[in-house]
Amino acid sequence: MSSRSTSQPNSMVDVAQIGYRHPAHSVDVEQGKLRFFARVIGETNPIYTDEAAARAAGLPGLAAPPTYAFSLELDQTRPFAMLEKLGVRLNRVLHGSQRFIYHKPICAGDRITLQSVVEDIYEKKGGALRFIVIRTEATNQRGELAVEMSKTVVVRQSRSAK
């Protein structure tokens, strides 16, 4: 099936959506939220929890742990709006893979802008599984690319959708 799927309520996604750019959003990196995240994952390096330690290491504020940019992307009113826009139902998706490429540290006090684009869509198992690759750039308030992210979302296709 190759018709456009934007009006369909089922879990279909369409290869015509490759290249779709979701509206960017910006988020403030907050010290309290960073500290909460670090505590929950058991992080013990004070650079993630103690502002004085972060400053002593030359940072303007607490450092964000390596996977935190993913949480910044979710920090919006409708965190799954992009998947909804692609016609994906949340209870049919699994997180298949995740990659980060690091350019600049993200720190408390930064304002990060996240821009996501659908990089690829492909099927496996005769169409039973559809893979959506989404690439996101996280840029700081100085216009510097801080982190690139790439995630693969696996959608279990319903039989009726085929």
Binding site: E43, T44, N45, I47, Y48, A57, A63, P65, P66, T67, L94, H95, G96, S97, Q98, R99, F100, I101, Y102, P105, S150
Partner: peptide, 16 residues
């Protein structure tokens, strides 16, 4: 980051 410190990572990816 325990092993290499907070600034050493260039790239980090996983498959679930």
């Amino acid at each position: 980051t325990n092993a290499f410190g907070p600034f050493a990572l260039c790239e980090f990816g996983v498959r679930f």
